[in-house]
Structures are given as structure tokens and as C-alpha cells.
Design a protein around this nucleic acid. Sequence first.
DNA 1: ATCGCACGGGTACGACGTACGGCGCGATAC
DNA 2: GTATCGCGCCGTACGTCGTACCCGTGCGAT
Lengths: 238, 238
Amino acid sequence: MAREETVVWERPEPPRRAAPSELSRERIVAAALALADADGLAAVSLRKVAAELDAGPMRLYRYVATKDELLDLMIDAVYGEISTRRPPGADWRAALRALATRTRRAALHHEWFADLLGGRTHLGPNALAHGEATLSAVYGAPGFGDADAAQEAAGALNAYVVGALRREVAERRAERATGLDKHAWQRAAGPYLTRALSTGRYPTLSTVVHDAAHPSPEAIFTAGLDLVLDGVAARHSA
Amino acid sequence: MAREETVVWERPEPPRRAAPSELSRERIVAAALALADADGLAAVSLRKVAAELDAGPMRLYRYVATKDELLDLMIDAVYGEISTRRPPGADWRAALRALATRTRRAALHHEWFADLLGGRTHLGPNALAHGEATLSAVYGAPGFGDADAAQEAAGALNAYVVGALRREVAERRAERATGLDKHAWQRAAGPYLTRALSTGRYPTLSTVVHDAAHPSPEAIFTAGLDLVLDGVAARHSA
DNA sequence: ATCGCACGGGTACGACGTACGGCGCGATAC
DNA sequence: GTATCGCGCCGTACGTCGTACCCGTGCGAT
């Protein structure tokens, strides 16, 4: 650093006790969440997170071994926002419904969460708590004694939620990209789609798209959710 | 380029008719698939794909506007590998089962496909054909006249498949990362998990993990699949 | 007061997606 | 036949990324 190239007088003071900004995983993750919420996952870089905390990039490596690890922490933070409290007096079905709905709310609040959902095994404490809540909703229920049955039900439900949320977020983004137009998506989303559908190569698809009532995203989510829960119930009674 | 800074004799010839390597979307996508299959999605960069075809990076931009567009083409190429032919004499249930199973096979063959599943709206011709096949399996079935019901069933099934495949691929990778050990995953996957489970904070989770039979991934996939199909059937008869 | 060591984090590297603009080629005008 | 023009292809270069490396700093032992 500027060995002798200037005289003392015009050489800056040593970097003011560097950056006395206190760091912690919590502060780091909070800053990362803020960036991701504001501008998407792509806006989360170690450099930007660090800058947000008045630090150089490498300081973060004391708290996090790799960028992926930061993402893991972010995921678990969101799981932490999803309450796992069971509504009082709720049967297994209502309990599962509540968990799924809350997960959906979290994913819509942090759209980047959907990008990460199911991408790597989530083993953070909050994710485990979420898994615990899901499993205990069915495992305790009468007639659900089998551990395998419980795992199967919880796994299937979870898979549905992951897939449904990813699709919903993807559609929401596509919609937003074609201008903020309200529900003109299925006919405005690129004249391309209209053209593709009118080629006659996808007859069922175009009939269905044309005839369907296009319910709200929330209605679609709950309809599919109930469908899966019906499947769980079918196994349950058998 | 080297305006006059050397004499002719030591100035290289003009770049030999550049690279006469013939390009096409097909060749580009094929090269990208090969890279992704070999080393994962992260290994797919425009530079590497181009290099594979003896071209400079920018040549690809004649065929593809952006890297995301290349990814879209890759996705559609995989959808193209998934046969949409309906098994002869199959009812709606068998038809959906066949589609889901084939999708799974494709995702296990191209693990990176799972990374992209559900991430953006898939509107390529092969993806549309896949959607057509899914919808027509239920829309034609007796008692499935309602377009909304068909869309609901197809959507729920698709969401399940996306979530289940992402989880399966993620687990497979985690397993591979802890050494190639066969099925020691649930007890070796980090002593961390064992420790976490023995804290007593996840009682159901640890009971279930301990008691469950841990079936093969394929069995898990089909079990969940049948559960969802049961749900579809429940709606169907109603 | 001096020395030695450990380690925190700044500097720098290689790779990325792609904006930009200059070079070379084909078409047009004489 | 030659000179000029314009366009479009793609090489060069920029800004950014994750993180390896290693130097300088500050502390504990002497």
C-alpha cells in the first residue's frame, strides 16, 4: 500500500480502524434477504451483501463458507417465517392445509424462495421444524399409525406444494413481464401462444384454455391442494 | 488490430476465413446438452458451448438472443425426448402414469432438467405437446367433460411431478456428495442429521425416519404419484 | 521492548454474460 | 471494371461475479 510514493502529509490515515461494523450471520442473512426481496436472487452477491454492511467481500467468509451456504441460510430464514403452530382443534387435513397455505404466503412474499424450493436438501433447523410439523399432522391422526404412510403423505404433499408454487411464481413473473396488465395474460402473453394454439396441433390444450374459467391463482392452488389431500384421505381410510 | 506496429512478415495472416464451422440451433443445443449432462448446468456457458463448436462466443448470438433462451431450448429438447404416445388401450390413469414415469426417466438422465423444472413457463413446441398429452388424457375420459376439472387435474399432477423430481435429484446429489455409499444416506448424511434428530426437538421426524422402511426412490415416486391419481379419481367420480 | 506467529480480509485472478463498434463483404452506381 | 456505400457478423473489451492467495496487522510469549 503506497509504500513511499507520497509524503506523510498527503497520505491518508490508516483505514480508520478498518470497518468496525459489527457482523453476524443474522445481519448478513437479513441484508441478503433485503436484496433478494428487492431485486431477485440474481441481485444477491457476496460483494453487494458485504457492501450493504460496510465491509469488504472477504469478511463474510468468516461467517459463511461459500455462497451456497448463504443461500441455505436464507432458505432457512424463510422457513422460520412460516409458523408451524397447529390451529386449535384442527384435524390432520386442516393442519396440512394451514401449513401449505402459509408456505404459499411466504413464497409469494419472497418470490426468490420458489427458485430455491426443492433445489437442495433443506436441513436447517427451521426446515426440520417445518418437516416435523407436516409429519406430526398426519402421524398422530387416527388410522395413520404407519410411519411409511405418514412419510408418503407428507412427501407427496410437499412435492405438490413445491411444484405448484414454482409454477405460480413463474407465471406471475411472466405476467409482470408483459406489462402489468391485469389478467390479459392468456391472450396477450405473446401473440405467440395464440398462434401456437391455433395451429391445430394442440387441440385439447386450446379447447381447454378457451373454455376454462381461469380461476384466481389462489383458487387454483387450493383446488390442487384439496385434490392431493383427497388422495391422502383415500390412502388413510384404506 | 495491430495497425502498423509490425512489418508484414511477422504479422499473422487474416484469421483464415474465420471459423467455417457450420452452426445451427440444433448443433448449439446438442453441445449444450452434452456439457450439462457431463458436468451440470453450471458447466454450460456460452463461451464453452461456442468453443465446443470451434466458434467465438458471440457467434451464438445469431441463433440465440440470450443465455436464458438457450436454456429454454435445452428444456424443450428434453421435453422432446419424452414420448407423448399413449399406450394402446390405456385409460386416463395409465396414460398419466406413463407420462409421469417418462418424465422422471428424462429427469434422471438429465439431472439439470430438474433444476429448470417449473422455473420459467415452458412454452416450446415439445412442452406444449407434453401439456396437450397430459390434458387429453383426462379431458377425453368419461365424466371429465369439464375443462376446469381437466386443467385442475393436469395442473396438480404436473406440480407433483415437478416437486417430486426436484427432491429426488437433490437427494441423489447429496447422497453422491457424501461418497458414493449405497444407502447409508439417512445415517451417514452428516452426523449432523443424526445429532439434530437426537435433540428431541423433532420427535415425530426422528421416529418416522427411524421406523420407516426407506423404499427405493422409484417406489417413493410411484407411491406419491398414485396418491395424487387417487385424488384425481376422487374428483372424477364426484 | 522485542520477536514470532496466526489469521482476517484486501487484492487479484479467471470466468462469466453480453454491449459495442470496426472489419469485410455484397450490392449498387458510374 | 472499379469505386463507394451500407449492413451485419462476431472479435474485443467491460463490468461483475465467487473466491484463492498471501501480506500486513495485532496479539501473546519471552
